[in-house]
Design a protein around this nucleic acid. Sequence first.
DNA 1: CTCCTGGCTGAGAGGACGCTGAGAGCGCCA
DNA 2: TGGCGCTCTCAGCGTCCTCTCAGCCAGGAG
Lengths: 220, 220
Amino acid sequence: MRVLVVDDERRLARALQAGLVREGYVVDVRHDGGAGLEAALGGEYDLILLDLMLPVLSGYEVVRRLRAAEVWTPVLMLTAKDGEYDEADALDEGADDYLTKPFSLVVLVARIRALLRRGAVPRPAVMRSGAVEVDPGTRKVLRDGKEVDVTTREFALLSYLTHHAGQVVSKAELYEHVWESHDGSGDLNVVEVYVGYLRRKLGRDVIETVRGAGYRAPSR
Amino acid sequence: MRVLVVDDERRLARALQAGLVREGYVVDVRHDGGAGLEAALGGEYDLILLDLMLPVLSGYEVVRRLRAAEVWTPVLMLTAKDGEYDEADALDEGADDYLTKPFSLVVLVARIRALLRRGAVPRPAVMRSGAVEVDPGTRKVLRDGKEVDVTTREFALLSYLTHHAGQVVSKAELYEHVWESHDGSGDLNVVEVYVGYLRRKLGRDVIETVRGAGYRAPSR
DNA sequence: CTCCTGGCTGAGAGGACGCTGAGAGCGCCA
DNA sequence: TGGCGCTCTCAGCGTCCTCTCAGCCAGGAG
């Protein structure tokens, strides 16, 4: 279980980290809203602990942007204020719970457990690349809003590419993640074949060839 | 949205009811743990507000028994105590959130909204998928408004699928939830057989096959 | 222009996957 | 005890998917 802690009070952040590590969580720490947002967007976290009052970007703002980017990681808001409207605002912005400082580690851990428990069915993120939308939850692929049938292999390949949209991904990397892994050698031609299948079903432009390097799904 | 309020302080219960009705919720009230549990088990609620200190059965006990009976309606615990261990206990028992009395209606409503939003798929009283309607209360299935007889197994399978309408559900997951669970292996062919039965009774289109991934009930 | 390398694609074998009909076992009821 | 409905197993069959192979095409270097 990976937890991201975003708090500018370094002492508190370190205490949280220590406490959570002792509970068996893997913990990353950021000290301002900007860095926090970046980490939250990129990293794969199961939960985010977010201070409300932060430099660069406020906690509110971080949650708003996260949700706007369709990242649904559960967020537990930490706040020193305790006016009721702050709480209500935070929850309405898309936070999943909040805790007023000072709080005890016991309560925090219990709340985290409750969040993770119900988070059992996290909304899977829908990935976009160009005119193509990939939804891992419903296992549907849309081209210009129209559903297109793809096979399991094709879906796996497309998912991997759109998940890394904008980046060049080598055939070897694709082969390792979508087909057998780790045995080093296999015939990479199968990757080319499946790229071909996808292009036929979804249009030439869904996957660009980068000669000598690999393939790339356009980032938008 | 149906909400069940269980609280033995009648004045507070009535105030909650009035406030929530004004917000557009349908509200039922019970005044002790026994009656509350019974209502929660039988009725289809989207949310339960549960006092911790109750006659007959405590709030703890009610949540425990609800979860033991595999009823996953979100529970918001109300408590007059504020020792941290109470909170932690309640959350560990399976409550989804708690609120310490006295609280304001603004905060309560915001918390309710947050709970319903993540709602862990709030279970509507009647589930629809395509031309099929499934009513867990009466255990009836309608196709184009006409009642169709289904057996217990068939009903369980159909319920699970329509409850996750739009999502692809693997045969293994279906097997685990509708047949024996947790022993990992069993013959998944039985799932195919029952999908076949349902299709014969309700029409081919009630359940889509997603080759290599599982089955899906159309989302509308 | 020619050669060479890397990428693309049509055809087809083999296999995995899903569907179905037949029927056995079991519990319930008359 | 016989009949009935429900549940589940099994085996066969057809379909679709996957992957290999061989030949072709395109781009880049000289």
